[in-house]
Amino acid sequence: MTQHHTAPDAATAPTGTADAPRIRSLSTRLIRVPLLRPWGPDVRSISLIETVVRDDEGAEGFGFSWTPSIGAHAAQALLDHDIAAFAVGRSSDPEVLWPELWRHLHEAGSGGLTTIAMAGLDLALWDLSARRTSSGLVETLGGQRSRPEVYGSGVNLHYSLDELMAQAGRWVDAGFDAVKMKVGSPRLADDVERVSAVRDTIGPGRRLMIDANQRWNIDQAERALDALAEFDLAWIEEPLRADDLPAHVLLRERTTVPIALGENVHTRYRFDEFLRAGVVDVVQPNAVRVGGITAFREIAALAESFGVQVAPHLLLELSGQLAATFDSPTLVESVEDASFDALGVLAAPAPVRVHGSTLVITEHDGLGIRFAAAPSATATGPAGPPDPSPSTTKRMPR
């Protein structure tokens, strides 16, 4: 179904920077992608909202929003209606448009679905900007300044012990020097057994991170980390509910294990609160959940000002490119068999390659992330039925 939006007259439409073309249209497409390795009984697919933006000079940019479980239809609706109605006719400069759009949408929430939807437009505008000069994203952001390190990651709390050890063995065989596993089992003794088994499998020379995915309260986290610290942990990720800053302050006083968080923190202001409180050692912004590249760069700069490491969350093909623009090497997450390339949804070769534990940027224009016209896993998947109106477009009149 196609929908039409009438933009303001050219004489009255806000145009942002004087030399930036205006946005003429924004269209979306919902793609449901079954996971090769389910992330649990209730997470067997991910959802992508492909975004295509066109400017008034005829150039196109391609981006996406993303969610692993719920909210895809709501994010698409925000893009198709509120975001498109505001953006069409305005500047295509992402750094000009982002703060204006965020203020406009703030009544619907400062982050979460709001910023997830915003990312679809922001990524498409950065792609458009790079394509105008036949450049890749890294070049557009100032060039490559470091070579990111990739770590093996698994959504594996539901794996049997044998399956977990086999996965850890694959990470070793692949050449990863750092790996991450899930914790938060109903019985602490099971977590101890599983972490011990992975440490034995990867050996003492590799870094081991654990991720509780917000499963613990403060007392559970303290007990668990007391029991697990002996396995030489590089960090504990999301030990507590992500929006409970006071609990993180208490945990900082009770453990020496470095704390990582950020995949469920959605705004620069919230990251600032955690950084000022001194409770985080590694921040992990998800470039889609925070609203796109524009917001991600602000958060990364903020973390740098506090001397705190940034390790982007998921989205290897995008996170790897952003990490390559950092002044010092950083860790980039590669969840086993869950990259866009591994899932078979890309229309062209991936913009990054992984060699051992090293990420290499390939030659490409823009983001280098375009989805196939009919991916092998499109629209219908274990998560639910196809969207009855999977593709919509908002345009300004000619």
Results as ranks from 00 to 15, higher is better:
5 H>Y: 11
5 H>I: 14
7 A>E: 09
11 A>P: 04
19 D>R: 13
21 P>K: 04
21 P>L: 02
21 P>Q: 01
28 T>C: 05
31 I>Q: 04
32 R>G: 12
35 L>W: 03
42 D>N: 12
43 V>L: 10
44 R>N: 14
45 S>R: 00
46 I>M: 14
48 L>I: 15
49 I>T: 14
53 V>T: 06
56 D>V: 08
73 H>R: 13
79 L>M: 08
80 D>A: 05
82 D>G: 01
84 A>K: 09
84 A>W: 07
87 A>G: 04
87 A>Q: 06
94 P>K: 10
96 V>F: 06
97 L>T: 05
97 L>F: 00
105 L>W: 01
111 G>M: 01
114 T>F: 02
118 M>I: 12
119 A>L: 07
120 G>A: 10
121 L>Q: 00
126 W>K: 01
127 D>P: 06
129 S>P: 00
130 A>E: 04
130 A>N: 01
131 R>L: 02
134 S>F: 07
139 E>N: 13
142 G>Y: 05
143 G>N: 11
145 R>Q: 13
147 R>F: 10
151 Y>W: 04
151 Y>C: 05
153 S>P: 13
155 V>E: 11
157 L>Y: 01
158 H>S: 13
163 E>P: 10
168 A>L: 03
168 A>N: 03
170 R>Y: 00
177 D>I: 13
179 V>A: 10
189 A>Y: 00
190 D>E: 14
199 R>S: 05
209 M>P: 04
212 A>D: 00
216 W>R: 05
218 I>N: 08
219 D>H: 15
220 Q>V: 04
228 L>D: 10
231 F>P: 08
234 A>E: 12
237 E>Q: 07
243 D>Y: 13
245 L>G: 01
245 L>M: 11
253 E>L: 11
255 T>M: 00
257 V>A: 06
266 H>C: 02
269 Y>V: 09
269 Y>S: 13
269 Y>W: 14
280 V>K: 09
280 V>D: 08
281 D>M: 03
282 V>I: 15
290 V>R: 03
291 G>K: 06
291 G>V: 00
298 E>H: 13
298 E>K: 15
299 I>L: 03
300 A>C: 09
301 A>W: 07
304 E>F: 04
305 S>Y: 06
311 A>R: 02
312 P>H: 08
314 L>Y: 14
314 L>G: 01
319 S>M: 01
321 Q>S: 06
322 L>I: 09
330 T>P: 05
333 E>Q: 14
334 S>H: 15
346 L>T: 10
348 A>V: 13
349 P>C: 09
351 P>T: 03
358 T>D: 10
358 T>G: 08
360 V>M: 13
361 I>K: 01
366 G>F: 02
374 A>T: 15
382 P>I: 09
387 D>H: 13
388 P>C: 11
393 T>Y: 07
395 R>M: 06
396 M>I: 13
398 R>S: 15
